[in-house]
Simulated assay, not measured.
Amino acid sequence: MTRSRIVATVTSAAAVVAISSVAAFAVPAKSLAPAPAGADRAAVAADAALSQPAEQLATSLPKSVFAAPDAVGSVLKSPKMVDGARPTISAALDLKAGPKRLPDVSAPENYGQNPFGSGTNQNTIYHYTDMLVPTNATAAYPFSTTGVFHFTNAAGQNKYCSASLISKSIIITAGHCVHQGGDKPGIGRASGWIRSGYFVPAEQNGTMPYGYAWATKLTTTVGWYNEGAIMKGYDVAMVTLGKRVGTANEIGAYTGWMGLCYSYCLQSYWELTGLGYPGNYYSGAYMTMGMHLETNRNNTDYYYGSGMQGGSSGGPHVANLGYLSDSTTNKGLWTARNYVFGVTSWGYISDVYKIQGASSTTGYNNSNNITGLFNVVCNSAKAQHGAASCNTF
C-alpha cells in the first residue's frame, strides 16, 4: 500500500482524504478556548517570551543515529522511568461546571481492516477500545495532566494538538506540533518553528479548568528537525511553559504530571492507553482514550488499532493509566503506573483502516536522545521558575 505524508489542513467537514494516505495529525484550531486577548494577554505582556516562544534548534543536541536492528528483533532491556506527581495545589482555580456525561464514543472491541494484511483486525493487536473520558474525571489526576496545545504554525495557520505534562512546566507532544519537519517550499528548516502556542490542561468543551500557560521554549529530535518524515520513530517534541496565566505558580502544581519513560521505551509489545482530542470524536471538544496492545513495527513506531484521527497527535501513550488497589501477593510483572511511553504521531485517515502510530519517547535503542531534549527544556524551566521546577538527567 502506498503511503504518503499529508500536511493535514481540513477546512470543512466535507474534506476527504484518500483512505490509503497516512497523515501526521495536526489539524486547524477548533473554536474552543480562543487565543487569549485583552486583559488575559496583558497579564503576561510583561514577559515577551511568553507570547513568542524562543526557538531551540534541534541541531544543538547530540545527533541521533538509528542502530541496526538486532537479529532477534527489538531490544528487550527493561525500560527506565522517572516518576510523575499528583497536584500540590489542591484547588482547581476557575473551574467551570462541565456538561453532563455523554455516551461512550464506540462499543467495546471496535476494529477496522488491517492495511498490512487481509481480513479484519479482530483477534489481532489492532483490536482496540476507544471511549469518552468521563467528563467528571477529565479534571482529576492523572487525566488532568493532558490537554490541548493551541499554536500558530510557521505559515501563520492556527492549529491544535494534544499534549501532556511531564513536569511542573514541561509538556511532551509530537514533533510536528512544534516544527514543520525538514525543509518545506517557501519555509526553510530554520524558520519552520511554530510562532506561538499555549497549553490548556483538561480542556473540556471550551472551558479551561486550570487556565492556560504560554509556550516559552521548543525542542524536537534531530530526526524530525532534519527530515520531518513520519513512521520513522522520531516525531517527538517537548515544550517549556511559562507561569499559569494570572498566577505566580507553575501550571503543573494544579494538575500534577505524568511520569516519563526515558530508556528503552520501544518494546516488542506493550499495553498502553492513548489520550487525546481527536476531531472526529465530539469535534475534539472532549478528551477521549483508547486502550490497546501496541507493537513495535520495523523498529520505528508503536503500531496499534485506533479510531482516532486529526487532533490526537501528540497525545500521550501511558502505561497503567490511573490507580488500582490490589490485595494479591503477586501483583504482576510490571506494576508502575502513569508513565508516558510515547506520543501519537500519525494514522490512516480512513473509516476502514483504523490504525495509528506513536513515536516512543526514546526511539529505537534510545536513538531519540530523550534525556538531552528534556534537559534543554528543564534548564529553561529552571531559569524561569527556579531550581525546584524539574530535575535534569
Rank of each mutant, 00 (worst) to 15 (best):
Q356W: 02
A285K: 05
L165N: 01
Y234C: 04
A46V: 13
Y212C: 04
H317R: 12
M258T: 05
N391V: 11
A91N: 04
Y126F: 15
A45C: 12
I194C: 09
G342P: 10
S169Q: 04
T288G: 06
A18F: 02
G228Q: 05
E294Q: 10
T219W: 01
N123H: 05
W193H: 08
T240Q: 07
C265F: 11
S263V: 07
I19D: 11
Y126K: 03
G188I: 11
G182Y: 02
R297L: 09
I170L: 02
T88H: 05
I170S: 00
A33P: 00
D235K: 05
G332W: 09
A215L: 06
S12G: 15
R297Y: 15
A248C: 03
S389W: 03
T329A: 14
R189Y: 10
A54V: 09
P28V: 09
G256K: 01
D104W: 04
A154L: 12
S74E: 12
A42T: 11
C390A: 05
S78A: 14
V245C: 02
S196V: 00
L275K: 11
V343I: 13
G276H: 14
S167E: 07
G84N: 11
S327K: 12
L50K: 09
G147H: 08
S350T: 09
N158Q: 15
K354N: 03
L102S: 04
S312V: 15
E55V: 13
Q384K: 08
I230E: 07
V22T: 07
S20H: 06
W214H: 03
P278A: 09
L61F: 05
N296M: 02
A49I: 08
V222D: 13
Y141E: 10
G181W: 00
G84V: 03
S191F: 07
V44R: 00
C390Q: 09
H150N: 15
T220A: 11
L293C: 03
K30E: 11
A190T: 10
G310F: 14
F143V: 03
G228N: 05
M258K: 04
S12I: 14
G386Y: 04
K77R: 08
S380M: 01
L266T: 04
K243L: 07
W346E: 14
